[in-house]
Write a protein that binds this DNA or RNA. Structure first.
Lengths: 205, 205
DNA sequence: TTCCTGACTTTTTTAACAAAACTATCAAAA
DNA sequence: TTTTGATAGTTTTGTTAAAAAAGTCAGGAA
């Protein structure tokens, strides 16, 4: 029985990998179940044996990405030498994550509103986890006596994350496309580091 | 000739006022030229005598709003006692402006992309003006010796304005609707003030 | 019993087109 | 010069049919 489940799990993994590649290169709407099945040399019907529907499949891929991302963060945010290093690592990791999976998120660019509820649950979970990790980093520093006490770390981190999220590019053509263009990600990253620098100073001042 | 132009200008003003009301209450797409004409008891054709088309009319209203907004800012940002007061006034004024004209901007919510170029020009001008005013505030404080020198005020203000703009609401349902809902504006405002507080500290630390 | 498929049904997307609503124009009147 | 009714032109909306993709199922293979 364990073996059977192992086999199942392996196949599910294969499906998730193939789906990830398709979604990553062509986006959600330009990927068909037939194509994914084709990549794996299996019938479309089999995909439905493993996953209830297309959106669930996408969500499963996204959940995996989110888990890996958070694992990376956790590993490092358990041991850091100072607050700035911790926050910088978060910003850098996030940047890398977006760059590597840019096209995967075309789902967000196109569907704008009315995405499946499960998507927002994942987004919420990730944000909650990030918030917790960063908030803990602050608490740790306070306990160590490295920085002066902070009244409400969660609130502070919440605001910081919003602020970082808000960083856009193009001072002149300020057209706020909901999702930043890929060619702007580097500039945005730089600006985020600048904001972070000032914010940390303000926090530890 | 002066009289004739005065008359024209007065009528143009009347049209702008009526249009403003319509746009404010029903938004751009739900306002028809017939309705505006009806409000003024004039024919639709006459509107086209004063304004080339509907979008130009909207833009004219927007330009007026922008001018008034900037005038308010300029008045106060020429005389302030400290940096925090200046920045806080900007945030408060902006908040008030958005609250008062919330529905007017439904144009932005709906059209998302591909707005008339002229709209973005105004947005750019306003942002540029705000940036200049706040940047000058910093320079003034530096000259007064009230705060320590700042290497690049424009860059700092640019990042701050992005950050403020990015403040959203709803930690759980983080659905990033491009434009904040009206019922969230107050909470957003509060969060902005918190961000501002930390940012200023970081700047003057 | 678990895994898998081809054939089938249902749903969604796309394209074409007509009707309706609205924008924009213009000759002529005030 | 200012104003309008009539009308031309364009965009939006609604309808329908065909095509494409999602999703189902009875039954076969392991």
């Amino acid at each position: 029985m364990a073996a059977a489940n192992d086999q199942q799990d392996i196949k599910r993994e294969k499906i998730l990998e193939a789906s990830h590649q398709r979604f990553l290169h062509y986006g959600y709407s330009k990927t068909t179940m037939n194509e994914i099945a084709g990549d794996l040399s299996m019938s479309k019907a089999l995909l439905y044996y493993y996953f209830p529907d297309k959106s669930q499949l996408y969500i499963a891929v996204m959940r995996k990405l989110a888990t890996d991302y958070l694992k990376t963060l956790e590993n490092r945010l358990n041991s850091f030498t100072n607050l700035k290093e911790a926050f910088t690592f978060q910003v850098n990791t996030h940047h890398e994550f977006i760059v590597n999976n840019y096209n995967f998120f075309d789902f967000f660019r196109l569907n704008e509103q009315n995405l499946p509820e499960a998507i927002w649950e994942i987004v919420g979970e990730v944000r909650g986890a990030e918030l917790g990790l960063l908030s803990n980093a602050i608490k740790t520093e306070v306990e160590k006596g490295a920085i002066k006490p902070v009244e409400n770390p969660d609130e502070i981190v919440d605001v910081l994350m919003d602020a970082l999220h808000g960083i856009r590019v193009g001072s002149i053509s300020q057209k706020k496309t909901n999702f930043p263009r890929k060619e702007h990600l580097e500039e945005i990253h730089t600006k985020k580091l600048l904001l972070l620098d000032i914010f940390i100073k303000g926090l530890t001042a």
